[in-house]
Design a protein around this nucleic acid. Structure first.
Lengths: 228, 228
DNA sequence: CCGAAGTTTGAACGGCCGTTCAGTCTATGC
DNA sequence: GCATAGACTGAACGGCCGTTCAAACTTCGG
């Protein structure tokens, strides 16, 4: 029975993962249960069996994607000591990729935008979105304060004010990157965010920061394959 | 026949206006032709008669809303001489309202976000979005350069770079305002944008800028009523 | 092994909604 | 006034897709 539990939990995640990719590819409103089922290697009926209704499935998928992303970022940052390096890394992770993996790592951002348009009409999505946003901003605030305590950043900057503006900048620019607007390729977004942070907080950018394309992408995703 | 033309053109606009409001209220994907027809005081069949298909209607409605908004802004700014005052006014216009009219003037921003999520799968929407974005950024660039020539702004700022970052900041913050996130009420967004601009471009804010709630909203909308 | 609980499915149901169509109404040109 | 083009509609069609359901299959405790 315990094994059963695990199995069914794995199935849930498998379906959620499939949902994330389908939504990323087709858009929230054009996503059909049958698409998700196919990607997950299951029948439409099974998907409903696990999630009860399409609405619940979609809402859970949105939250799932962004929570997973946030968890990864948090975990990575927890292994860095310097506040400056944490902020630099956070910026790198927040910038959608350039590389081949384009299709892959845009999903998180696409789903994030889908949350924006759905939130006004779905309380649960609105709540999830706000919670994530608060956590994200909170992380920035923590890093800034930590850096100020350690003498890495100037102390005449209000951490909360900076965090709101900086998170806003990231969101706004990421839209252009996700939509492939040639005006702001990923590289440029990264540079702008890095320069803004270093200027406002008064720190020197590490030499690698502006050159490096991107550290090896965290090896997630692609793990859950088809069952068969 | 000419009179006919005018009549039918008025009808088109009436339908587009109805579409904008329905999309703003129900979201792009939950918008039905019947809803739009009802708001416009017409039958579903008539709406199709004018626009051929739902997709074309929605795409045109998105472009219509944002082009109208941009035209208004452009017109208002054309009557201001000082570059500084132009920028201040632009910021005021770009910030979604607080007031009673909430339902009303959020529409433009909601549709703008809907364009973001639809663009990846609809070339025509993608093209419209990019054109609008370029024009918007272009306006900022023009104002900055003009201000630099006139000695109102510092000259060691790259206008294009500033415009991209500033437009990004506006977009990012506007999401929070539109979603009614208490962290960033309209007033705060306005303050942040004003402060950022004045700091980076090195000008003094006019005394009224930070106090005033918002100049009388341009008297548009609500004009096209039902045809009896 | 048996049966109960947990999984999984194919097939069918049913509603919603975009689209079509045949035809009415209105006004304008002749 | 009559014919014609354009504006407009109600009703019906048809497909798509979320949801339901009864039944098969799988696993496992006893």
């Amino acid at each position: 029975m315990v094994a059963r539990r695990k199995l069914s939990e794995a199935r849930r995640i498998q379906i959620l993962d499939a949902a994330v990719r389908v939504i990323g590819a087709r858009g929230l409103c054009d996503t059909r249960i049958a698409d998700i089922a196919e990607r997950a290697g299951a029948s439409s009926a099974l998907v409903l069996y696990y999630f009860g209704s399409k609405d619940r499935l979609l809402a859970e998928a949105l939250a799932f994607a962004d929570e997973r992303f946030y968890a990864e970022v948090t975990h990575e940052l927890s292994q860095i000591e310097s506040a400056r390096d944490q902020l630099v890394r956070m910026i790198e992770l927040a910038c959608p990729d350039d590389d081949l993996s384009a299709e892959d790592s845009m999903d998180d951002w696409i789903l994030w935008m889908e949350m924006w348009t759905r939130a006004p009409r779905d309380e649960s999505v609105a709540a999830d979105r706000k919670a994530l946003d608060d956590k994200w901003r909170g992380s920035i605030i923590d890093i800034v304060r930590q850096g100020q305590r350690r003498g890495e950043f100037r102390t005449d900057v209000d951490a909360e004010d900076f965090a709101v503006r900086f998170a806003g900048l990231i969101d706004g620019l990421s839209v252009l990157v996700v939509l492939n607007d040639p005006v702001v390729p990923p590289r440029r977004m990264r540079e702008m965010c890095l320069r803004t942070a270093s200027t406002e907080l008064g720190f020197e950018l590490p030499a690698r920061a502006l050159r490096r394309r991107r550290a090896a992408a965290p090896a997630r995703r692609r793990a859950a394959g088809r069952v068969g």
